[in-house]
Design a protein around this nucleic acid. Sequence first.
DNA 1: TTGAACTTTAACAAAAATGTTAAACATAAT
DNA 2: ATTATGTTTAACATTTTTGTTAAAGTTCAA
Lengths: 194, 194
Amino acid sequence: MAQRDTGTEQLIKDTAKRIFFSEGKLHATTQDIADAAGVNRTLLNYYFRSRDILFEQVAAEAMAEMKAVMDSVFSAKIEFKDKLHKLIAVFMDQAMQFPYREMYVVTSLNRGDKTVPEEKKIKVKAFLKEISEEMEKGKIKKMDPRQFCMNLFALMAYPLITSCLNKSIYTVGDSEYLKLMKERKQLIFDMIYQ
Amino acid sequence: MAQRDTGTEQLIKDTAKRIFFSEGKLHATTQDIADAAGVNRTLLNYYFRSRDILFEQVAAEAMAEMKAVMDSVFSAKIEFKDKLHKLIAVFMDQAMQFPYREMYVVTSLNRGDKTVPEEKKIKVKAFLKEISEEMEKGKIKKMDPRQFCMNLFALMAYPLITSCLNKSIYTVGDSEYLKLMKERKQLIFDMIYQ
DNA sequence: TTGAACTTTAACAAAAATGTTAAACATAAT
DNA sequence: ATTATGTTTAACATTTTTGTTAAAGTTCAA
């Protein structure tokens, strides 16, 4: 029998995703999510049986999305410089939408109820190798490639995680902050390349 | 009447501080804290009346400590270069001990139940001015001083927040990671100065 | 050694969050 | 018009966490 699909199930997932990974409220209650989605709390149990299942489902989709996005960069057969440009553009766009998605990974690891897939470690190793080669060519200042990688991701992710704090201490509004973040893309590239 | 002070009240606070700000478990239960401290949960209520009061007390002390540490840097009458060195040394030592303390500030701001004190904003403004002057002198690559500031704190804080993730994807152990973090102090300085 | 402060245990109350069930209503497809 | 699906409401059960109380044991200082 054809299910009706009024989009409500997706609405709930999207809302949860926003609350968890855009607003950083990883401990929002089912009521919080229901309210934000404008539906009755019972519906969450109707569609997902439990909060845990909803959470896991949303998290899994978010991880899959991140993986897809990063794979599109890492597996691209383009020269390193362009790869770096693409990585910064893509990662920061993602981080602007879901700044706290990485933090979820971190807290999951901290609690010990997740591990990093081997596949990812392999891709990172390959990326580190590319970085080393670029250092040999003199395109990047020589250093431990892991340090380079940490620098890159720190520069991209941290200002977005702390946007609320930064807006306050630098007294800038939303639109100006957005402008600063867009400017950062080029700025980061210039900082770490050649 | 002379209180006996067996150090247990402090032990509870120190344990809570470790769980909250070193391990990043901001939502640890009173039972978690009591267990980690090796005392009966009732004692937490005996000393602090409620979880909230314990949390607030620990958070207030942590914030005061951070403020003291940062003030010792910002108000130092030394030339900018040395100030930067000192800032990196001091901030990173703190962040190595309590990597999630900043995250607590961020989540508090996100929930809207804290604000940044005006005093802090003033100090930041003064620091931004120092940065601008240093840029005029040609000691720092010219850019928006706020971007410089964000770069600096991102480079210091992020790898410590994500240490668990990094250890995993770069397959390094605790001691080697510690070494990497120590190396970062100089590396960060070299990256952003002159 | 007496007493006040410290600590544990146990039992319980209260609150918050989650999960379940049944009944009723709305709506679109057949 | 009927029916299956979607949705709400309400009431309730369960679980988790927090807070309270009383009693008993421990330890140190006066």
